[in-house]
Structures are given as C-alpha cells and as structure tokens.
C-alpha cells in the first residue's frame, strides 16, 4: 500500500532522511515513534504529498503523492498536530467538504459526533483544541479513506476521550485500511498500535510486530544492577531495575512501548542482532 525506497529528504542543508526505505501494508495500525526532530511528521507529510522527496521513490496506492491527484487525495486523510478549522458549524463543514470524498459516510460521521458529544450548531473555530481534534477524527474516519495518518492524535484529549479514541481507531482499522499514528504519547497507544516503527537519525531502525517483539524480548524486574553484557536495556526504578533481555524461554511477557522505544534507541545494534536471528550475547 505504501512503498518508500531509498528516500532522501532535507530541509535546505539539514539532512533528515538518507536512503530510507519502508513498506507498509493495509490492515495494520502502525505506530510511528521517534525522538523529537527524528522526522515523524515530515515522513507523514511526504506520504501525503505535502513535502516532496529529494531522491528516491514514494508510492502510495500506486500514486506518486507529490502529484496530489484527486483520486489519491480522497483516499488519504491526514490529521496534523496543528490544524485550522473554518468558522462553519459541523453541518456546513460537512456540506462543503464531504462532496470531495466519494466514499464519505454521513451516518458514521453523525454517530461519531454524537459519541464525542460535539455540538452540531456551534462554529468549529470556537471549539476547544480537544473538540477540534475529535471533530477532525470523526470527519477523517467518515471519509473512508484507505490511508489514515494521525500526528499526535491524543495530544489535547482528556482521559475519557483518549479511551474513546482508542476504541474508535481500533474499530476503524479494517483489513483494507492502513492507519499510521505518529506519537510521543506511547502510553496512550498501548494495545492499539501494531507494528511499531521507530525512526532515528534519518533511518528506520525498527519495524516489527508486537507479536515478534514479545517473542524475541522479555522484560524482567531485578533488585541488583544487571551485568550489561546480558541485557539490551535497563532502567532504574524505585524498587530495583527494569531489564530488557533476549527471550530465551519462549514464554511471552508484555513489553511496554516506552521501554521498547528506549531499548531500541539506546541499543539499536543489540536490537538489530536479536531481530535478525542472533542474540545479544552473540552480538557482544
């Protein structure tokens, strides 16, 4: 569905991506993680045709995004972190914008607005940040685009809305649809995003399913500081240490996304070795 190969991209003289390749398939809710400035938002913008690659090929649903063909644009919905909504109410917004999306589902849109308890008659530009976000999530899902890109979708949402968001996105994730969620709020995304993509220093350093992660890695709590040669990552906690190690006994333990992210970013070579069939000890 999305094929990126050998992508180079720079902002003036600041290189962001060098030779980045990525293949994303329908039927998944991808979590796109990375440090600040790693290029998560830029990658989403390249996929949606808002930024153009300097080199390499980006193919989305057999379209070249930078041409911004209408058939391509109506099959992709991008919810950015910062957005603008005009001074229209929900009904007028729908009348103005929905005709551009041939698969728009008005019934679904109304259902979602009701679920988020958004007023129909209030002007959208007078909504709070969180309400605006909920409105656009509702509109985006109702557009029935096969690709749904969300940049920091839970920022500004209150706790009940985050729960609603997870439920709505989980139910929107059909086998024909590809959802990419770029986020720092990894705790909000537990049990929602799978596979996990981590980008760092212009490259994809991790792209694995949760199942594979729990197969390959295990997380343990120990009281004494572990020997660094046997662990991929450790962090101090109040009552000891949290340790990420290679899973050798084939049992599966749940891995928190935050811990996984820290492990991958601090020890990319160790992780690479584990996921390419070796083990951390062989790598050392």
């Amino acid at each position: 569905m999305i094929n990126i190969s050998n992508l180079d991209f720079a902002y003036k003289k600041t290189k962001l991506f060098t030779n980045l390749s990525l293949e994303l398939k329908a039927g998944n809710i991808y979590g796109l993680l990375g440090k600040n400035g790693a290029g998560k938002t830029s990658l989403l913008k390249i996929i949606s045709g808002l930024l153009f690659p300097d080199n390499g090929i980006v193919n989305v649903n057999n379209f070249i995004p930078q041409y911004r063909d209408p058939d391509f644009l109506q099959d992709i919905f991008f919810l950015p972190e910062e957005y603008y909504l005009p001074g229209l109410n929900a009904e007028k917004f729908q009348k103005t914008f929905a005709p551009f999306y041939s698969a728009f589902d008005e019934k679904k849109f109304m259902e979602l607005l009701n679920e988020f308890k958004l007023p129909m008659d209030q002007k959208l530009n007078s909504f709070s940040y969180g309400q605006k976000k909920k409105f656009l999530i509702s509109f985006g899902i109702a557009c029935n685009s096969r690709i749904f890109l969300l940049d920091e979708p839970t920022n500004g949402l209150d706790i009940p809305s985050k729960t609603q968001f997870r439920r709505i996105i989980a139910s929107a994730g059909t086998e024909n649809r590809l959802i990419i969620i770029s986020t720092h709020q990894v705790r909000d995304m537990e049990n929602l995003i799978d596979p996990i993509i981590i980008i760092d220093e212009g490259k994809v350093i991790f792209n694995e399913s949760i199942e594979k992660v729990t197969d390959k890695l295990t997380i343990k709590k120990v009281t004494d500081k572990p020997a660094t040669a046997t662990v991929l990552y450790s962090e101090k906690e109040i009552d000891g240490y949290k340790v990420v190690m290679t899973n050798k006994d084939q049992g599966q333990t749940e891995i928190e996304l935050e811990t996984l992210f820290n492990t991958v970013v601090t020890n990319p070579e160790g992780i690479k070795s584990v996921f390419n069939g070796g083990s951390i000890n062989e790598n050392k």
């Binding site: 808002l50 644009l73 914008f97």
Partner: peptide, 17 residues
C-alpha cells in the same frame, strides 16, 4: 499560510482545478 496550507493542498481537487 502555515495554518491553512495543509488543508488547502490536501483538499481532493486537482492542481489545475
């Protein structure tokens, strides 16, 4: 404009339109 450019460019209509 930064706030509106994204909406405008992603609106499903051709560049010519």
């Amino acid at each position: 404009k930064k706030e509106t450019a994204q909406n405008y460019l992603l609106l499903p209509a051709s560049n010519f339109e």
